[in-house]
Design a protein around this nucleic acid. Structure first.
Length: 965
RNA sequence: GCUGGGAUGGCGUAAUGGUAGCCGCGCCUGCCUUAGGAGCAGGUCCCUUCGGGGGUGGAGGUUCGAGUCCUCUUCCCAGCACCA
């Protein structure tokens, strides 16, 4: 019998109209009911319209919210438009329409597209960030931020996009380029409004711990973005050469002139060989201006600063990381840990706006300092020996405290005429080593090298060429039966000639001397410490970044670097500080299409906020809204808008002409949905209390470090001023996986591979589209669109539609277990966002239903309710045909009967020695004896046992039986 | 480089430490037909001497038993990256 194909057009339209007429999805806050606030990241209505990827998240929240509603909760599932900002304005400019008209048109298109998919949005709560009724409150929040000192004027150089002709926040950059148009940004000095998000850095970071239902990768992105690092600030006193009187100068605290540096590694203080300050360092500005000029190479430095300023951010950071800089002649600084006098450089690898703008350079243990030191021929001092552990027997280190030896030696000894090196091949153990030793009392390391070479090899004329640093070995000394912890100082030695004397027999018994090329040596050497020594010899020293035990560090030598860190810092006069990578939020845009910043400039009173009662400051209607490119906003040209009166002195004042960034309106919109038409407040305390926080929030992962940080920041501020009552706005977050095109590329007009949801809905129906998108795979996965798989979803719905003719009044017992398992599965999976497995479970149930050939009406109605969140139109139709009361979407969610979830019998696998050899069908509560008895009857099991008796039996009720002979 | 996530048939994927590959797509065989993006039935990891044997990126380990837990490693995706 051919299956029927249901008339999706008719059914979709019929029910969408009915739900609208009946206000089926009307949201009311009902104190008597539990609430569920389910939110999508509201869209930016671009001119391109939707593609099939956009609704995926909306379908998920729709399924989720419908499930919540059927569980009797009061559900808030709203939709609105984030319509201010650059994309809309650039689109308008390109198409020569006013942004307001472009936005209106785009919103109409988006809304129509969304409505065809049959979402349960309550459209009476629709909001639009460009509506003065809405941005009234965006401006209100700005005034509150200003009142609390969190919005301030700044003249610091900011990121400027020469193409969009506006300043940008750090978050608007991608690898030094404008995130919107990919143009490299430049630094530009402009008066700006800046929000002090850094005041909230600590809480933004710490409170991530209170968000267990956020995906780890989003939280990790935020942690990276905030970039907290704990360290110390240290003062390096300056000593002046030109005019010694400068050394007597004291500041207000009685301190001589100094550079304050920030470091996270005070443990490497003994390895500091110079200090570097950023080109923007304020001391430099002053020093170059001073009349007596403390620097001897002022003009050279000025040239360097000019060259740096001319570079774009990309040039400065992406120039293959080639280091540049200039030495400050005429001054030096003193290392506070040991009084050593070291030079000072200015170099642009040090950032002016992080930490103190000055660093202590430790080339031995920092890659950037190492690169700089190598290029400028500065000293590289190793103060941590890279540690290697060599366990002969596991666990041995835990039992014995190791004996520390600070002055071990490791010798790489070159042959007098050949390109080979001396190694020792041990006789009693399978070892290959270099020559080693320990410095004797009263001898220098160099004398010890000579002595050890003579004693162990007999060679008389070694010449120590150079020291190669040191390595730290922790090992078990077999002959002495003790753990040893040895700093091995590596020496490179060349033998002058073959002159040699005899050596003691005991040395001869230990090992043979072999001569190997460095290549052969690599494989020959057993200890990792010796391999490291060889590596340093062949490739040179590389900065060691890890922890380890300190060397050449005065009294600290031999202590573990992480353990000694605090003591070193204290001794050098360090002050603990925490720094953040996060920068304050540059909040001004020199563009038309945004919320006007509600501030005034009065000649008499200075900066004056617009009084609250004068909000909203409306964006004026204009004919020309093109950006000026001068750093002035287009609004500056509208004189009758700009010129106004000062609310304080009633004198003339000018309006701020910059507008807010795109992210302003979206930083608090979730609060407005709770009470969207309130003229007196952003949100009423009652509605805020009832609906807060957002229970489930769904959107793209690309917002991890932009919208989601900004919104958390504003929310915490609103919490502080008691507008919000929760510390976090979004309890649970899901990031929706992308839908890419069938060709594996991003869906884009450019590639001509865009699938339009309207077409899909037209041809296959809204329900097939919805079921397919939820069935594609795990919600967060990026998955390629596949039209033939979509046909599979449609087939599933057609089979259900056909099955309506198989419904009988009486319950079909053989289906009840299957049905109740499915109820359980779907009920668990929807809240967990495992939509794919929920649908899979319903497909399995349908297979069972078709095998049974009929189903009871009540069972059928339960099945329809399970599917209703996914396929609302078809299920509503079938629900009515089955005699359901009211809308299926207001019906009660079915409950699984636990009694029916337990099987009478189960088929479990039987293993013999861990390999599956057969299966038995028994009661899930069968005893071990019964199970074994049944298993022995299985021919496969009997054969595998070969008559042997099982010695060990592992039996897990209802799961597995494992017989081990 | 650092951090987070991942790797299972031809494809998307599924498996509280317990029979690997459920469900769907595709494909193969046959049937039916008003020839469709249709329907129905069966099949579809690899090898096999038909007894079995092997198999979840790779190598070890823990366990009666590992796709799942641990160690190392390769590759892929994402965030950050001259932030001291």
């Amino acid at each position: 019998m051919a299956k029927e194909s249901y008339d999706h057009k008719n059914i979709d339209e019929k029910w969408q109209a009915r739900w609208r007429e009946d206000n089926t999805y009307r949201t009311e806050s009902d104190a008597g009911k539990e609430k569920a606030y389910v939110l999508d990241m509201f869209p930016y209505p671009s001119g391109e319209g939707l593609h099939v990827g956009h609704p995926k998240g909306y379908i998920a929240t729709d399924v989720y919210s419908r499930h919540q509603r059927m569980q009797g909760k009061s559900v808030l599932h709203p939709m609105g438009w984030d319509a201010f900002g650059l994309p809309a304005e650039n689109y308008a400019l390109k198409n020569k329409v006013h942004p307001r008209l472009a936005v209106e048109k785009n919103i109409a298109t988006f809304k129509e597209q969304l409505q065809k998919i049959g979402f349960d949005y309550d459209w009476s709560r629709e909001i639009n960030t460009t509506d003065p009724e809405y941005y009234h409150w965006t401006q209100w929040i700005f005034l509150k931020l200003y009142e609390h000192g969190l919005a301030f004027r700044s003249e610091e150089p900011i990121n400027w996009c020469p193409s969009c002709m506006t300043g940008l926040a750090n978050e608007d950059l991608d690898q030094g380029r404008c995130e919107r148009c990919d143009t490299p940004v430049v630094k530009k000095q402009l008066p700006q409004w800046v929000l002090k998000i850094t005041d909230y850095a600590d809480r933004l970071l710490a409170d991530l711990e209170h968000l267990p239902k956020w995906p780890e990768h989003i939280k990790e992105s935020q942690r990276n973005w905030i970039g907290r690092s704990e360290g110390v600030e240290l003062d390096f006193t300056i000593s002046f050469k030109k005019n010694p009187a400068d050394n007597d100068w004291r500041d207000a605290d009685g301190k001589p002139a100094h550079f304050t540096i920030f470091t996270t590694r005070p443990d490497t203080l003994f390895g500091v060989t110079y200090v570097v300050i950023a080109p923007e360092h304020p001391w430099l500005m002053q020093a170059l201006r001073e009349s007596h000029d403390v620097l001897e190479n002022g003009s050279e430095i000025r040239n360097y600063l000019d060259a740096t300023a001319a570079k774009s951010e990309i040039e400065r950071t992406a120039e293959g990381k080639e280091k540049t800089g200039v030495k400050l002649e005429g001054i030096s600084v003193v290392n506070p840990i040991n009084g050593e006098e070291i030079p000072v450089y200015v170099a642009d690898y040090v950032l002016g706006n992080y930490g103190t703008g000055a660093v202590m350079a430790v080339p031995g243990h920092d890659e950037r300092d190492f690169a700089f030191a190598t290029k400028f021929g500065l000293e590289v001092k190793q103060v941590i020996a890279p540690p290697f552990k060599q366990t002969v027997e596991p666990g041995i280190f835990r039992e014995n405290e190791p004996v520390f030896v600070n002055d071990g030696i490791i010798c790489i000894i070159k042959h007098w005429s050949e390109d080979t090196y001396l190694a020792l091949k041990w006789k009693k153990v399978a070892w290959g080593t270099l020559l080693t030793g320990v410095v004797d009392e009263g001898l220098s390391a160099e004398e010890t090298v000579t002595k050890e070479i003579r004693e162990e090899t007999g060679y008389l004329n070694p010449k120590i060429v150079r020291k190669l640093g040191a390595v730290d070995g922790l090992f078990y000394h077999v002959p002495k039966q003790v753990n040893k912890h040895v700093h091995g100082h590596i020496f490179y030695v060349e033998l002058e000639n073959a002159d040699r004397e005899g050596i003691a027999d005991e040395e001869n018994e230990k090992h043979d001397i072999v001569w190997l090329t460095s290549e052969e040596l690599k494989d020959f050497l057993t200890p990792d410490t010796h391999k490291y020594a060889l590596d340093v010899f062949t490739h040179g020293y590389q900065p060691y970044l890890g922890e380890g035990s300190l060397m050449d560090s005065g009294a600290f030598t031999g202590r573990e670097s992480n353990e000694a860190m605090a003591d070193l810092a204290a001794l050098a006069g360090g002050r603990s500080v925490t720094n953040y990578r996060l920068r304050d939020w540059v909040f001004s845009r020199q563009r038309y299409w945004g919320e006007p910043i509600p501030m005034l400039y009065c000649d008499a009173c200075g900066v004056v906020p617009v009084p609250y009662e004068n909000l909203p400051v409306r964006l004026p209607e204009v004919e020309h809204y093109e950006p000026t490119g001068t750093g002035e906003s287009p609004l500056a040209a509208i004189t009758d808008w700009v010129n106004t009166t000062c609310p304080n002195c009633k004198g003339p004042a000018k309006r701020e002409t910059n507008t807010m960034p795109q992210w302003a309106g979206s930083s608090w919109y979730y609060l407005r949905f709770m009470d969207p038409h309130n003229d007196n407040a952003l949100v009423s305390p009652e509605d805020e209390k009832y609906w807060s926080p957002v229970d489930v929030y769904v959107g793209g992962a690309e917002h991890a470090t932009r919208h989601l940080i900004y919104a958390r920041f504003w929310h915490k501020f609103l919490y502080d001023i008691k507008v919000a009552t929760t510390i976090e706005p979004f309890t649970e977050l899901h990031s929706v996986g992308l839908v890419i095109a069938e060709d594996g590329r991003k869906m884009s007009k450019r590639f001509g591979n865009v699938i339009n949801p309207d077409d899909v809905v037209e041809r296959f129906g809204a329900d097939a589209f919805r079921v397919y998108e939820m069935f594609m795979g795990p919600f967060e996965n990026t998955i390629a669109w596949n039209t033939s798989s979509l046909v599979g979803a449609r087939r599933f719905l057609d089979r259900i539609y056909t099955f309506r003719n198989k419904i009988v009044p009486e319950e079909i017992a053989e289906l009840s277990r299957s049905l109740h398992k499915t109820i359980q599965k779907v009920s668990d999976d929807i809240p967990a966002f495992r939509f794919n497995t929920a649908i899979s479970a319903m497909m399995i149930l349908l297979n069972d239903m078709e095998a049974a050939g009929k189903m009871g009406n009540d069972q059928w109605k339960a099945f329809l309710r399970l599917l209703a969140p996914f396929a609302p139109h078809l299920c509503e139709e079938l629900w009515q045909l089955a005699g359901g009361t009211g809308s299926i979407h207001l019906a009660t969610w079915p409950e699984a009967n636990p009694a029916l979830l337990v099987e009478d019998t189960v088929v479990i696998g039987v293993q013999v020695a861990g390999k599956r050899r057969g299966e038995i069908t028994i009661s899930p509560s069968a005893s071990e004896e019964e199970a074994v008895q049944a298993a022995l009857l299985d021919p496969g099991v009997a054969k595998a046992l070969g008559g042997a008796k099982p010695g060990q039996i592992v039996y897990r009720e209802g799961r597995i039986l494992n017989l081990i002979p």
